[in-house]
Amino acid sequence: MFTRHHALRVVVVTGLATAAGLSLAPTASSLPAPDRAAEQALTALVSRPPAAANAALPQDFSTRFGYRPTVANGLLGDPSGACSSPVPLPAEFTPACRQHDLGYDLLRYAGRSGRDLPPDARRSVDSRLGIEFENSCSTREESLSRATCLAWADIAEGFVRINSARQGYAVPESETAMSIAPGISLGVAAAGGVVLVVPGLRRRIGGAR
Score class of each variant (00 low, 15 high):
Leu24Pro: 12
Ala189Asp: 12
Val13Glu: 06
Leu45Asp: 02
Leu186Asn: 05
Ala165Gln: 02
Gly206Met: 04
Pro34Cys: 10
Glu39Asp: 14
Pro50Ser: 04
Leu57Met: 00
Leu31Glu: 13
Pro95Trp: 02
Glu175Ser: 11
Pro199Lys: 02
Ser84Thr: 04
Pro88Asn: 06
Glu132Thr: 14
Leu76Gln: 05
Ala82Trp: 05
Pro199Ala: 05
Asn135Gly: 01
Gly15Lys: 03
Ser136Arg: 07
Glu134Ala: 14
Leu57Thr: 02
Thr18Ala: 12
Leu150Arg: 13
Ala53Pro: 08
Ala82Phe: 13
Phe2Thr: 15
Leu144Gln: 08
Pro79Glu: 07
Ala38Ser: 06
Glu157Thr: 13
Asn54Val: 08
Thr14Trp: 14
Ala56Lys: 04
Val195Thr: 15
Ala25Thr: 13
Leu45Thr: 00
Arg128Leu: 15
Leu107Gly: 10
Val12Ile: 11
Ile180Thr: 13
Thr3Val: 06
Val71Ser: 07
Arg64Gly: 05
Pro119His: 08
Pro34Val: 06
Gly111Ala: 03
Leu24Trp: 04
Cys97Ser: 08
Pro118Cys: 05
Ala17Trp: 00
Phe65Glu: 00
Asn135Ile: 09
Thr18Val: 11
Asp105His: 13
Ser185His: 00
Arg122Trp: 13
Gly111Pro: 08
Ala37Met: 03
Leu31Tyr: 14
Ser179Asn: 10
Met178Lys: 05
Leu117Ser: 07
Ala121Ser: 15
Arg146Ser: 10
Ala189Ser: 14
Ile131Val: 14
Ala191Val: 03
Ser30His: 10
Ser174Met: 12
Pro32Tyr: 06
Arg64Lys: 09
Ala19His: 07
Leu144Gly: 10
Val87Phe: 15
Ile155Cys: 04
Ala190Pro: 02
Cys137Ser: 03
Asn54Gln: 15
Leu16Tyr: 10
Arg115His: 12
Tyr169Pro: 07
Ala37Lys: 00
Ser136Gln: 07
Leu42Arg: 06
Ser145Tyr: 07
Ser85Cys: 05
Ser124Leu: 09
Phe93Asp: 02
Tyr67Asp: 05
Leu75Lys: 09
Pro182Gly: 07
Ser124Phe: 06
Ala55Pro: 12
Ala151Thr: 05
Arg68Leu: 08
Ile180Trp: 14
Ala37Thr: 12
Ala165Leu: 01
Tyr109Gly: 08
Ala147Met: 05
Pro69Trp: 08
Thr63Lys: 00
Leu102Ser: 10
Thr43Ser: 14
Gln59His: 14
Asn54Tyr: 12
Gly207Leu: 01
Arg128Thr: 14
Ile162Met: 15
Ser185Pro: 00
Val171Trp: 07
Arg108Pro: 03
Ala208His: 13
Ser138Glu: 15
Leu107His: 09
Glu134Met: 14
Asp126Met: 02
Phe65Ile: 03
His6Trp: 03
Pro69Ile: 03
Trp152Lys: 04
Thr148Asp: 11
Pro34Tyr: 01
Leu117Tyr: 02
Leu89Asn: 07
Ala52His: 07
Gly66His: 06
Glu92Asp: 14
Val188Gly: 08
Leu8Gly: 04
Val46Gly: 09
Ser80Thr: 11
Ser185Lys: 00
Ser85Met: 00
Leu22Lys: 02
Thr63Ala: 12
Ile131Tyr: 10
Glu132Pro: 06
Val125Met: 01
Gly77Arg: 00
Thr94His: 01
Leu196Cys: 13
Gly81Trp: 04
Leu22Pro: 11
Phe65Asn: 06
Arg108Gly: 09
Ala51Tyr: 03
Val125Arg: 00
Gly66Phe: 07
Pro199Val: 03
Ala208Asp: 15
Arg115Tyr: 03
Leu186Trp: 12
Ala44Lys: 01
Ala181Tyr: 09
